[in-house]
Write a protein that binds this DNA or RNA. Sequence first.
DNA 1: CGGCTTTGACCCGCGC
DNA 2: GCGCGGGTCAAAGCCG
Length: 494
Amino acid sequence: MDNPHHRQLTFFLSHSIDHTDPPSVKEMDFFSTSSAPDHKNNTSTSDTNDDYQKRDDQHDTHDRHGSITADGSPTRATDHHVNTGLNLTCASAGMTKSDNSENPETELSSLENQLGKLQEENSKLRSVLDQITKNYAQLQAQLFNALQKQKLPKNVETKIVDPGASTKLDVVNNASVSDEKTDQDVSVYRSNNAEACPDAAEDVLDRSSSQSWGSSKLEEQPKTAEQLPAEQIPLRKARVSVRARSEAPMISDGCQWRKYGQKMAKGNPCPRAYYRCTMAVGCPVRKQVQRCADDKAVLITTYEGNHNHPLPPAATAMANTTSAAAAMLLSGSAAPSKEALTNSAGYYSSSSIPYASMATLSASAPFPTITLDLTQNPNNAMQLHRVPAGHGATFPLPLHAAAAGPHLLGHPLFFQQKLPPAALMPLLQRQPSSSMVETVSAAIASDPNFTAALMAAISSIIGVPRSSDDNNNGNGAIPGSPQLPQSCTTFSTN
DNA sequence: CGGCTTTGACCCGCGC
DNA sequence: GCGCGGGTCAAAGCCG
């Protein structure tokens, strides 16, 4: 459990921050079980936007630095619901019981002193974050320019896209030989993405790379009236669905939505609501919100399209998350290797793969859909959600075979229908009404394997072994950074 | 009054 | 061709 984060921490320190004197003690505290009580017990329900924003900011900071013991606000630390896997705690380094036992005044001043130091450190980290944000914006612009150049000749673009798609199909075929529907499903998938709409895949990727969630307006090239429809239509062929437990009628993802329709879906007593983004005129992003027929506590939110405007920080995490998922879906890099597939073909037969991911392709799926299932708690993550036979084939599609700790690792990615998994859910379960943004981002951020897979996806798309320079929320573009939410923005949901 | 929700109608794709 | 279901439109109403 700790290892992945330690790796993240180490990586970050070695690449981005000017730590003249690495605060090893503080880092130790982060992962120290003794000083980091299980924050699963934190059950704060205050979830105002303000709180959310704070946590979001804080979370970003943790994701990036992993070495923040506190941000100067112990209460915020305790309010932090997101299981980042860092065992974050408000306990300060060196604050032991023995220290508190005598000389209350001395102790108080000591605490204040420590608090001041923590606040100072926090401000430093924030300034670092600001710098990273700026760097990110620059890199994003550069990436966009590079992608634009790369896309110009269509055949070249196709060249980039097709290998990924074929790889994916091959992988699927090999991984699901036991399912007779596989070929059919694959064919459907292929037709949906290549034959029926030859430009769909590349368009999707185009959009993904140029119109990602939260992408800056600076990146938005003026589009002609003819270009827009051509881009948008294929774009909406791919979707990212997020399943989460929530009592709220709609998860708060930081965006502004306007409801434009509601329908009763067949087979589900709960109506499906249709929303479109209203944060910018003409934003093509839409989402569907519907409760799961089987479990009404589960809210299924399906995102479609890419924002054509900057997103507020609170919205970028979700955007990044869905972008990453979509990127993996579209790039065909979700499955790193056939070997990996083979190894996990037993559906989590080994407990050494706590949260293996899997994917399904459905013949009934009108478009490729990737589902982030956040409804599973770690204890259930091993359970396999088999897609009903009538819904298509299910193939294990491990995004990572590495064992993750019993926390937030593993992101079940389902291609249409559910792909169970993951370990993200305990958070939402504890705070059903809270935003998913932090949960999702925390989970993904905590999974270097997912990030690695994403990196592969990105590489397959742009043909450059680049890691993470795209982050709409201005998250630091730390090359090779395992913090997925900070790295996947460019290749977004469709 | 502007923005949002509601809701019935309409369009379109798909399967039979 | 027809029916069904998903998705969208747009008028009407509501609300701050």
